[in-house]
Amino acid sequence: MHTRYTLTRRRLLVGMAHAALAASAITEAAAATEGLPRVTVTRDPNCGCCIAWVEHMRASGFAVEVVEIDDVVPLKVKLGVPEALMSCHTSQVGSYVIEGHVPADAVKRLLAEHPDAAGIAVAGMPIGSPGMEIKGEAPRPYEVVIFASGRQNVFARYRGIFRI
Rank of each mutant, 00 (worst) to 15 (best):
T40D: 07
T6H: 13
A32V: 00
I26Q: 14
P130C: 05
P37M: 09
C88L: 10
V93I: 11
R11I: 08
I146T: 13
N153V: 15
L12I: 09
R11P: 01
D44Y: 08
A104Q: 02
L13D: 11
V154E: 05
V81T: 05
I164E: 14
R159V: 15
M57K: 10
L110G: 04
A20Y: 07
L79H: 12
R11V: 10
Y142S: 08
A20M: 08
D70N: 15
I146W: 01
I69L: 11
L85Y: 05
T42Q: 13
Q92R: 15
G94I: 04
C88V: 04
T8D: 08
A30Q: 15
A31P: 02
E34G: 09
E55V: 08
A22G: 09
V81S: 08
A19V: 11
E137C: 12
A104W: 03
R9L: 09
A30W: 09
Q152S: 12
C50H: 07
A29L: 13
M86V: 03
E137Y: 09
I127A: 07
M16L: 15
G100I: 01
F147P: 05
M57V: 09
G119L: 06
R43L: 07
V144H: 05
M86I: 07
R157M: 08
W53L: 02
H101E: 01
G48T: 14
I51S: 14
S149W: 00
T27P: 00
A138H: 11
V66I: 06
W53V: 04
F62W: 01
V72T: 10
K76W: 03
L75T: 09
H101R: 05
R157K: 14
P141L: 09
A84N: 12
V72M: 05
H114M: 13
T6A: 13
A63R: 11
M125R: 01
P130R: 03
I26C: 11
A118E: 00
K135Y: 08
T90V: 04
R43G: 04
V107T: 08
I69R: 15
